[in-house]
Amino acid sequence: LQLFIKTLTGKTSTVEMEPSDTIENLKAKIQDKEGIPPDQQRLIFAGKQLEDGRTLSDYNIQKESTLHLVL
C-alpha cells in the first residue's frame, strides 16, 4: 500500500509498504529515502505516536494514509 509521509517542512514523500510491515520497517524505508536515522523519527497517525514493534495493520493504516514525521 502507498503511504504519504509528511514532514514539518510540508514536504511529502511516498513509500510503498505492506499492511504486515512494522513501524520499524517503515522508519528504515524513510531512512533510505530521506537519510533520517530511525531513532530520530517519530511518526504520528490519527494523533497517536506509532511504536516500532507494531504493524501498520495494528494501527489500521490504510492505503494512501498520510503519516506525520516529527524529528
Rank of each mutant, 00 (worst) to 15 (best):
T14S: 10
N60W: 04
E18V: 11
T12V: 14
T66G: 02
N60D: 08
P19W: 10
P37S: 08
L56N: 01
L69F: 03
T9H: 13
R42A: 08
P19C: 05
I44T: 08
D32M: 13
E18A: 12
V70L: 13
I61E: 02
L67V: 13
V70F: 14
I5W: 03
L1T: 04
Q31P: 01
T7C: 13
I5R: 00
Q49E: 15
G10P: 02
Q40N: 08
E18R: 14
K11V: 10
S13G: 05
E34V: 14
D39F: 11
Y59A: 02
K29V: 10
I23Q: 00
I36S: 03
T66N: 04
Q40I: 11
N60K: 09
K27E: 01
P37F: 05
L8E: 14
Q62S: 11
M17P: 01
D21E: 07
E24Q: 12
S65D: 14
F4Y: 13
Y59M: 03
S20G: 12
L43C: 01
P37W: 06
H68I: 15
K33V: 11
N25D: 13
S65N: 07
T55R: 11
K27G: 00
L56H: 01
Q49H: 10
S65W: 04
E64G: 15
D32T: 10
D39L: 09
Q2M: 14
S57M: 12
D21F: 03
Q31T: 09
K27S: 00
Q40E: 11
K27R: 06
L50Y: 00
D32P: 02
L8M: 13
Q2V: 15
G10Y: 04
F45C: 02
D32C: 06
N25F: 12
E64N: 15
D32R: 10
S57T: 08
F45Y: 13
H68G: 04
K6P: 02
N25M: 15
F45A: 03
V70D: 07
R54L: 12
T7A: 07
T14I: 14
L8K: 11
F45E: 01
E51S: 07
P19V: 09
S13Q: 11
K48S: 09
T12K: 07
I30S: 00
L3V: 09
A28M: 13
G10E: 03
